[in-house]
Amino acid sequence: MAERTEERTREADAEAEGDFGVDVGTTESLGGGATDADPERSSESTRSYFSLRALLYAFGAVGGGMVLGGLIPLLPFTEMLGIALGAFVYGLVASQRRYLELAVAGGVSGGLTAVFSLLPQLAAGLNGTRLFAIAGAVGLVLSVVGHYFGRDLRDGLTKDL
């Protein structure tokens, strides 16, 4: 009975991740369940903490959110709220946690946006390094919080009742 429950759990997890039970490189013997490679163990050992592809997607999501936030007229710093929006959508869509990539994308995007939007004041003597650091820290926090809430909503939508 416990074996059947475990099998259902693995099938539900595989469907939730977009994998419909087809594992390339693993074969089951007729004896019942012995595989050439354990997919759970192999995915943990090959999982990296940083992905360049995920970083590029994070920059795209954060940049798209910043563009949408910048379309709101007469309100200052709506691009920063766009960072949180882009990270939220990325967390809602992505199947894995990518906090590091979104932290980098949010921090760099927030810092560069603040510096470029206040470029004339920088020429007049405003400290650009301090401005970049403050805006980068705000962008970093907003992107991580947005990604967290997106992941939380995704988890709530995909959980069985």
Rank of each mutant, 00 (worst) to 15 (best):
T5I: 15
E7Y: 05
A12E: 09
D13R: 12
A14Y: 07
E15K: 04
E15P: 01
F20D: 09
G21H: 02
V22K: 10
T26I: 13
S29E: 11
G32N: 01
D36M: 12
P39S: 08
E40T: 15
R41S: 05
S42R: 06
E44G: 03
T46A: 13
R47M: 05
L52W: 14
L52R: 04
L52A: 15
Y57N: 15
A58E: 11
F59W: 06
A61K: 04
G63R: 04
G64M: 07
G65H: 01
V67R: 06
V67H: 03
V67C: 04
G69R: 02
G69F: 02
L71A: 09
P76N: 13
T78V: 09
T78S: 06
L85N: 03
L85P: 06
V93C: 08
Q96A: 12
Q96D: 15
R97A: 04
A103K: 05
V104E: 09
A105S: 09
S109K: 02
V115R: 06
F116E: 00
F116I: 06
S117N: 08
L118K: 12
L119E: 11
L122P: 11
A123L: 03
G125L: 00
G128W: 08
T129W: 10
R130Y: 09
L131V: 09
F132M: 05
A133N: 03
I134D: 04
G136V: 08
G136S: 07
V138M: 07
V138W: 00
S143T: 12
Y148R: 06
Y148M: 08
Y148L: 10
R151E: 14
D152I: 07
D155R: 10
G156N: 11
L157V: 14
L161T: 11
